[in-house]
Design a protein around this nucleic acid. Structure first.
Length: 850
RNA sequence: GGGCGCAUAGCUCAGUUGGUUAGAGCACUGCCCUUACAAGGCAUAGGUCGGGGGUUCGAGUCCCUCUGCGCCCACCA
């Protein structure tokens, strides 16, 4: 069958084939397949915020090329997708869209309606709503976002099986996440601890090490005088004078001769007159400032270390809202000190600092002017103010940060994983080797998977955190603020001798770290799970190796004692043409939908697939134009080749040049197959593309006269058979990269989808022909073209005489293609002789033009 | 301070165990309306492969070193 359009076109092919693939179930996972026949992908669940980022196009295309390749190789591809809709990103979006904020102290209002829908005025003050109302609003917004997002992802031609769609806030995800947590708890891998914790005072939540980043911010050194009972004042440099009231000690290095005589003595703090000891600790740096530091509870993580290792008291004053405690603390006993504190009580960090500096100036206990500096400060990656350290009870999962044996086991998992590209392994090792604590998984937020626990209350109504009440697995998912633990009644909630639900939700990574389990049906479909786990491939960006990848390895290591997948395929970032990372905050993001419309999906995918694994790639419309050209060329070349008609059934390539072309193609197949097996889609595309353009420009030009029938029938049949065989293979080699146009041209002469056809791995041996033939033949062809171009003649111009003199092998090769060359070049007399080196002389016909 | 990556034509990049005169595309220039394709084709030109040193018969490729750019990590008072 052939059904070739008169005017082939790329217009509208996306919509046509998307519809067809969906109707035919082309990408449907065959769940009858056994594990060894399955290729399972742990697709990154994007945050469905309504806008598709060019980075999605880039990385999802990379994964899709591998998925399509494996499908054509005969694997049943398990290719799910989910929407990562729980967590702070969604909460923020909901706040911005609807103009509310969550206040968990409020009661549920069944009549509540959001005041706005995306049109919140600038001066609007967020309306507080109850947690159940807030969660309802979140569900509404994400539902709308996800419909939009699905259309966008479909538009990319990503061959996921949409019947496997999940969300990270959905019941199955919640159940999976909670069950995994309870297993961690039962095995002792999850534990709670009341300890100083990095805390975001705007988002009102603790954050994990993996979510922190350093930012350089302006600050200043202030030189403060601490008073000795005898002798001169001791001077320290600090960037945080506002913490002076929380000072618990001073510290210097044990080897620091300047302070050695004073170790063990006490000094009085400026302004507040609190007596603190001068202690020795090796972390104090003699070269920094005066070599003397004040220890406050808590200015930074070093303070926490000192506090813990030197057994110091806690004098924390900064609350969860970042403000100084209202009541004057008991350790400030002097009237002057109490008066000073009254000035800063209730102030936030910045105003408190200004006030303290002002007071120190007045008292003369600040020496000289502040010296402005720029210094790195820890921030929550989504936060806007520096993190504070507050003591709070939180849940942790062991990740090797406090346990060398576990750390080494997890480092070994990193070695065991196949990284593409291999050097990405270093990011993992670097991160795991540098952990300084376990994974803090509890978040004081609202739209997430609840920590599925309750606590008993004592007779006074205080929480007994050691008496954890655990739900039965069959109850999951639960919200402990709604569901009641076994053996209790709802009216005992919050009452003495009753119970209280854990108010927190889990870190969003605590749920995304079990995406293989969510997608694979760990909790409700063990048969499916056995067919897909451990998965084959985890595609993701290098920026989330320390979070998503590492957390997933931790969970799988604890739960199954193995890796969750065998391969990690790491994509790079998109850089704008000035080579800056594209991100929303920089405002240099390109909206891909316009590109998809301007160039077509295949063209944009072509650009994406030319970015090598792991390499940050510049956004380049030029590459998309080339991709568009490739699509057009595939249409035209296919139309042309098929236009020669089918050779007789028993026809086969017999002519040397035809066999040589097929031999070259066989090499391309080998190369491309090997590359895709190693997840190097870019190399596979490049090889196929190079072949294809050579095929069109040289081979087809050379044999088209013969294919039309200028020579013997058997020779014509050889050309037609070779052309069709090559075309068939080329369509399949390109299919993973440009799925729409390959499906289009394939449909002209085949039943069924090209994406369901076998990968051409074993179509023919490279020994089918002699590729070395192609070199001298190509040189003759090029020489003839050059001569015509230099004479400013048309390529159709006649060559009076072509004289070729060369080594025997070259002469033999050219002799074998003599007739094709003569016809392609319009050569009247063709003289061929043996000599030392290849010499080509072209004598053109005298111009008959005016 | 530690780790990783990159540096090849004006631009974007290939160059896979070291092997003959270093490649492609885009851009530039010239030519060709050629019956698959003018939203095309053909061709010319363009590089001391970041600098220096070393190993080797031979180095863009391996080793050392320096420089520049980028990323990750770090206990940053």
């Amino acid at each position: 069958m052939t059904n070739i359009p008169d005017k082939p076109s790329l217009d509208g092919i996306e919509a046509r084939w998307m519809k067809r693939w969906e109707a035919d179930g082309t990408y449907r996972f065959d769940r009858g397949a056994s594990r060894d026949q399955v290729f399972a992908i742990d697709t990154p669940p994007p945050t469905a915020s309504g806008a598709l980022h060019i980075g999605h196009v880039f990385s999802y295309t990379h994964t899709d090329t591998i998925a399509r390749f494996q499908r054509m190789r005969g694997r049943s591809v398990f290719y799910p997708i989910g929407w990562d809709d729980n967590g702070l990103a969604t909460e923020r979006r909901v706040q911005n869209v609807t103009g509310v904020r969550c206040d968990p102290s409020l009661p549920f209002d069944p009549e509540f309606k959001a005041p706005y829908n995306g049109d919140v005025p600038k001066d609007h003050r967020a309306i507080p709503v109850s947690r159940p109302n807030f969660v309802d609003l979140c569900h509404g917004v994400i539902h709308d976002d996800e419909e939009v997002f699905e259309q966008l992802v479909r538009r990319l031609g990503i061959s996921i099986d949409w019947s496997l769609l999940y969300t990270t806030i959905g019941p199955r995800a919640q159940r999976t996440s909670q069950l995994a947590f309870l297993h961690n708890l039962a095995r002792g891998e999850a534990y709670q601890q009341d300890a100083p914790t990095l805390y975001d005072i705007d988002e009102h939540t603790a954050v994990a090490q993996a979510e922190m980043e350093d930012r350089d911010v302006p600050g200043a050194y202030y030189k403060l005088a601490f008073h000795r009972y005898e002798g001169e004042d001791l001077l320290i440099d600090t960037t945080r004078p506002e913490l002076l009231a929380s000072c618990v000690a001073m510290v210097a290095h044990p080897d620091d001769a300047r302070y050695q005589p004073l170790f063990g003595t006490t000094v009085r703090t400026p302004l507040f007159g609190v007596e603190v000891p001068l202690l020795a600790h090796h972390l104090a740096d003699p070269d920094k400032g005066t070599g003397l530091a004040m220890i406050c509870t808590f200015g930074d993580v070093t303070d926490v270390t000192w506090w813990r290792e030197l057994n110091l008291p806690s004098r924390a004053l900064i609350g969860f809202d970042g403000r100084m405690a209202i009541d004057t603390p008991g350790w400030i006993t002097s009237p002057a000190g109490q008066a000073a504190y009254a000035h800063v009580a209730g102030l936030g960090p910045k105003p408190a600092q200004r006030k303290i500096v002002e007071l120190l100036g007045q008292s003369g206990e600040m020496l000289g002017e502040p010296r402005p500096i720029s210094h790195p400060v820890k921030f929550y990656e989504r936060g806007s103010r520096p993190l504070e350290i507050v003591a709070t009870r939180q849940w942790y999962i062991r990740n090797g940060g406090r346990d060398l044996v576990l750390r080494n086991a997890l480092l070994a998992r990193g070695d065991q994983l196949n990284w593409h590209p291999a050097y990405m392994r270093n990011r993992y090792q670097n991160w795991v080797g540098g952990l300084n604590g376990d994974w803090l998984v509890s978040r004081q937020r609202y739209f997430g998977v609840p920590i599925p626990l309750w606590y008993r209350l004592d007779d006074e109504g205080n929480s007994l955190y050691d008496e954890v009440l655990i739900p039965d697995d069959s109850q999951l998912p639960i919200d402990p603020s709604v569901t009641c633990p076994a053996g209790f009644d709802e009216d005992q909630r919050g009452k003495p001798a009753g119970f209280i639900g854990d108010p927190d939700v889990m870190d969003t990574w605590a749920t995304s770290s079990v995406t293989p389990h969510i997608a694979g049906g760990w909790v409700d479909d063990p048969d499916l799970f056995a067919r897909v786990f451990p998965m084959d491939m985890r595609p993701q960006g290098h920026d989330i190796i320390r979070t998503w990848l590492f957390a997933s390895v931790v969970r799988s290591h604890h739960e199954h004692g193995c890796l969750p997948w065998t391969n990690a395929a790491i994509s790079g970032f998109i850089l704008d043409p000035d080579r800056k990372k594209m991100s929303k905050s920089k405002g240099n993001v390109v909206t891909p939908i316009n590109l998809l419309e301007a160039f077509g999906t295949d063209a944009v995918r072509y650009w994406a697939a030319s970015g090598r694994p792991g390499v940050d790639t510049a956004f380049d419309e030029g590459q998309m134009k080339i991709g568009r050209k490739l699509g057009t060329k595939l249409l035209n070349a296919t139309k042309f080749v098929l236009g020669f008609g089918e050779p007789p059934a028993d026809a086969a390539p017999t002519v040397a040049i035809d066999l040589a072309m097929l031999a070259r193609l066989a090499e391309v197949i080998d190369d491309s197959t090997r590359a895709l097996d190693e997840f190097d889609y870019a190399r596979a595309l490049e090889r196929t593309e190079t072949f294809f353009w050579w095929f069109c420009d040289d081979y087809v030009e050379l044999v088209k006269s013969r294919a039309y029938g200028s020579q013997a029938d058997v020779a014509a049949h050889s050309a037609r058979a070779a052309l069709r065989q090559a075309l068939d293979i080329v369509h399949r080699l390109f299919a993973p990269f440009v799925p729409f146009v390959t499906e289009e041209v394939w449909s002209w002469w085949h039943d069924g989808s090209v994406h369901a056809s076998p990968w051409p791995a074993a179509d023919m041996p490279a020994s089918i022909g002699d590729v070395s033939l192609l070199v001298p033949v190509g040189e003759v062809l090029a020489a003839v073209r050059r001569a015509k171009t230099e004479a400013k003649l048309s390529q159709r111009a006649t060559v009076d005489e072509l004289i070729v003199d060369g080594p025997p092998a070259a002469v033999a090769a050219i002799e074998a293609c003599r007739a094709d060359l003569a016809e392609a070049g319009g050569i009247a007399t063709f003289t061929l002789s043996e000599g030392e080196t290849l010499m080509i002389a072209v004598r053109l016909a005298p111009s008959t033009d005016v």
